[in-house]
Computed example of a mutant assay.
Amino acid sequence: MLYLVAILLICSLVLNIILFRSRLQQRTEVKYIRNKLKKVINEETGERLLLYTDDKYIKSMLIQINRLLDHNQKIIGNYNSIELSMRKMLSNISHDLKTPLTVILGYIEMINNDKNLTTERILGLLKTVNVKTVEVLELVNRFFELVKLESGDKKLSVSRIDICEVSRKIILDYYEILINKDFEVVIDLPEDPVFVRGDEDAVERVLHNLISNAIRYGSDGKAIGLKIRIAENDVDIEVSDKGKGINELHKDRVFERMYTLEDSRNTHYQGSGLGLTITKRLVEQMGGSISLDSIPFQKTAFTVRLKRIRY
């Protein structure tokens, strides 16, 4: 009996020692986690918690903490990217506003102060002032349109649209311009109606942006194409040109907010960098996507994919 009691006491002592060591180890590990987290927060580092442990609860907690740290790093990265983009946007808008406003103010000052100006000269200056004023208004309107799209204030009315009819209407708007510029125009549209899911005003704006972009930046190639391809569940609308194209290093960035063609396509054309961003936001709000493929002086094509409707 005494022998059995002695064994039980020894087992109890060993168990307590194991539990004590386990608690001590657990306390040490929790202390490490606390101090490491404090360092990560205070020093804003991208470190993860690395700790070897046999405790399954500590392991589980470490996994979740590291997931949280990774998520936090992504948020910080996105915030920094957006902040940099916004700074560049404001810088570009300031530059793009300053140039025409300087011309406007200069010409108005000339009209007010130079008494020797002829009526013909004054009318010529006022015509330039009008053109520059329209440029300013267009830039401001584009900026506010993008702000509305990204804030969710601009809601699209999605319905069934005959994309062939809309495409024909838009390309006809550019008929005179294309003829005067001696462009070769290749149009490949199905004869029968093809219906997609979208907002008609938004689709028209997207096509206007892409066609005007092709005319402006692809003018060296003297060619423009508009093609519709039908898949089982989608419809692709391709607008192409044969101009200078877009470098492979930059083509994934042309849809970024304020990523201008000064950075990517042609230093002679310095746009505000809003047109393609607005285009992408409109397409995405309609549940579609937009992509770019470019081989300089062969084919630069923007392809909009929208959901097909069969009825």
Rank of each mutant, 00 (worst) to 15 (best):
D55I: 10
R34P: 01
R27K: 15
L62G: 03
N266R: 11
L69M: 07
V239E: 05
Q298N: 12
T300F: 02
L51P: 12
L69E: 06
T45P: 04
E165H: 06
E83W: 00
I82E: 02
N116D: 12
G243I: 00
R121M: 10
N113W: 05
S12H: 08
V185M: 08
L178V: 07
S219P: 00
E83V: 01
L306R: 05
G273D: 02
V186L: 11
T303W: 02
Y259F: 13
A231T: 09
K251P: 03
L97K: 04
N66V: 08
S85E: 04
R229W: 05
F195L: 15
S272R: 00
V196W: 05
T260S: 10
E120P: 00
K88N: 06
E284K: 07
L210G: 09
R168F: 00
E176L: 14
I82Y: 02
E284P: 04
C11H: 10
E145W: 04
I41W: 10
I278W: 04
A223Y: 08
D236S: 14
I170C: 11
N130E: 14
K280T: 00
F297C: 09
T260D: 01
E248F: 10
F297S: 08
L68M: 14
L139W: 00
G221E: 03
T118W: 01
I290V: 15
D54S: 15
I278F: 03
L276D: 01
D201F: 06
N92Q: 04
L249W: 08
R48A: 08
I170L: 09
P190A: 13
E191S: 13
H250R: 05
H95Y: 08
E109A: 11
S159E: 15
D234M: 14
E248T: 06
L15P: 03
L172M: 11
L226F: 06
M61S: 06
K36C: 11
L178Y: 07
L37K: 07
E135W: 02
Q298Y: 07
D188Y: 02
Y107I: 07
I18H: 13
R205S: 12
I18G: 01
D55P: 10
D252W: 03
Q285L: 15
I246M: 01
I290M: 09
Y175F: 14
S151P: 08
L172S: 13
K222F: 05
V203W: 02
N247W: 13
S60G: 15
V203N: 03
L146G: 00
N112Q: 13
I230E: 15
V129C: 11
I82G: 00
K115L: 12
D173Y: 05
S272K: 00
L146W: 00
V283C: 07
I224F: 03
E184V: 14
I10P: 06
V203T: 07
D96S: 07
L50N: 14
Y311R: 10
E238Q: 14
E204K: 13
D234F: 12
S94I: 00
K299G: 03
R216H: 09
L24H: 06
G218N: 04
